[in-house]
Design a protein around this nucleic acid. Sequence first.
DNA 1: TAGAGAACGATTTTT
DNA 2: TCGTTCTCTA
Length: 777
Amino acid sequence: MSKKAELLSLRKEILNDEFSFLNPPQREAVFSNDGPLLILAGAGSGKTTTVISKIGYLIRYGNAYNSQEIDFTDDDGEFLKECLANKKMRDGERYFRLMSPSPVDAYNILAITFTNKAAGEMRERLEKQYGIDSGKLWALTFHSFCVRILRRFCDRLGYNRNFTIYDDTDSHRVIESLIKKYRLTERYNAKTVARIISTAKSRNTSADEYSGENDIEKIYRDYQAELKAANAFDFDDLIFMTVRLLSLDEDVKSIVNNRFRYILVDEYQDTNPIQERLISLLAPSGRICVVGDDDQSIYRFMGAQVENILNFEKRFRNAKTVRLEQNYRSTQTILDAANAVIKNNEDRKGKNLWTDAGEGEKISVCHLQSQSEEGDFICRAITERKEKEGLRNNDFCVLYRTNAQSGAIEHALRLHGISYRVFGGLPFFKRKEVQDILAYMNVICNPNDRTRLLRIINEPKRGIGDTTIEKINSICDKTGRSFFDITAHADSYAELQRSAEKLKDFAGIINELTEKSERMRPSELCSEIISSIHYEYELKKQYETNEAISRIENVRELINSIAGYEEAEENPTLLGYLEQTALVSATDSLDENEPAVTLMTMHCAKGLEFNTVFITGFEEGLFPSSISLLETGGVEEERRLCYVAITRAKKKLFITNVASRMIFGSARPAIPSRFLKEIPEELIEETETRRPERPAQRRTKPLSERPLLTNSVTVMPGSKAPTKKYRTGQRVRHKVFGDGVITGVTEMSSDSMLEVEFETVGKKKLMANYANLKEIL
DNA sequence: TAGAGAACGATTTTT
DNA sequence: TCGTTCTCTA
């Protein structure tokens, strides 16, 4: 063996040792960087660890494992041998000269995920384990990556860089008004049209290129024109426009390609065609690594194409595939069940999960009579396992197919006094009162944002109705002036005589706030908005006490949320905050340590794990859903969902179904899900059997048991569950308002309202649960 | 223009 | 059943 070959092989040995905490396929995935790489990562197979290690390897060692390049002198062999024997030697200039001929700069790596949570975790782990600066290495979601590109280059598409982002509620509003404008309400609803437009964009089809029904073509074009005029992008546009930019503007493309030399994409099975297109444009070099699991593709209804992962090797030439099949999460029993179920699908790459963790407990399947029994059973099982296994509430998760199922389970948990939190439902940032205030903030940033302007022009009620708005719209069309401009000068238009005063008042409020926004922190501006429109007073007027309290809490929580943003961000701006809120989701806020049982849909649970998992409503028509039975490939998609649900469990899985389920108010008989038969009998123990048939009872919940507001128990970002006891005279510290003394405590339904006299900002009212006050001396 | 009552329609939702 | 949107009337 030549000297060089010897050194290269020593180098490999050292690298294998450096990454010996990984299993062989994981290491192969880390070391393979010569061309496109597909990592097929089964549930719980250490996917994130592998990706993090890969990035760490690239930055520390470049592609050294497969590189022939080595700069050595005579006695380097001895040195490497010492390094192999002694970990402490692996540092310093000489070591890296031999071990890392061409390291990759963090600046040249781009890691893309779907959720903020995943991106955040990645940034955190890179920072912690490899000291990688998250300002240098972009680990972002598809959408936030595109926002960054667009903020820099969107002027080339004719947009202004302070654009706002429309969520689907905003899109709906625009589409709805267009449907009304063309008098098509009989034929279309906004939801369907929004879906069609979204699908078109996800297929890289612009409004001009789109061909379909005339009316839809018209609406799509107008919708796009409206967004452009409002200087806004919808979610699909963020990606669609970035793709346009990269494919049409060579200059931008080369800037972007020059920066990002290595691309990593997580959850590749969930990409849609336009995202795949984006990835191709980003990785012309072929230095791309995608990670995913075709068996966990559960977002087809959102446009995801499993084909992207199935055809990866065709799409990217010379691609290599590595399978991660060793599972570090679950027992063999749980994995056997998951494998057995997913085996019934045809369109898949094929994988078989295994573990050396041992067989574990059997899967408990329980047939129950009604939903209330189902809930009751879950509570008893939780209590029993808490006692026997020493588990805590946060070790448990209850999964269901539809959000509507949560009610009965919540009811049971309340009766048993088990604390819980529900994910999904209406997320915090989608709530009406929160959206209203955010709309004010959006308008202040971007007065062209007509959709938000329309939302707040009569919110709270100012006596500005549809007729007035119609009139302003037609003046817009005639004069070409902006909606806000006309509102502000309403008295110059004869047709607006009657409402001119009200319109000018409104414009005055906005102008004043806009002016203030220049010298106020976003959180201050937010409370300024709330007080200048007397919003809390309006809420009290509009809703009954409990609901008004809850909505006021939400509005105040919004201020807290902004304050939190200001604290976390080096350079907080209003626009930055709005961008963040536009791109957050419910599960982003999951705090694993909070002592509560988790309730969520199976979709929401992807990527999470719990000691004990309950899969409820295992019934035909519900799971698989009756609608899925009609769609081609629908059952396969549901089966993948089942696979995802089963593999969330680490130690113990419960599956429940009922004989009679309330659907839309009436009790309907249910039969066990077909997926149950796909789980081998020897993995199952049936712990409870159905009682003899008896007529379904009508239950009307007493008022006191009903939740005050739907989702009132949903844990919101930043909030902390346990209510601390506060008393007057106590000194406290608030992260924005500073130090103060409690001057009043008013107990409310589930929280208490505190009056605090702050040293610097004076008297404030805060909700105890959300204010996050620290006790001080 | 606002509010009350009728009619409708209803999986899943990373951003 | 329940929550949102539509339509009518004061």
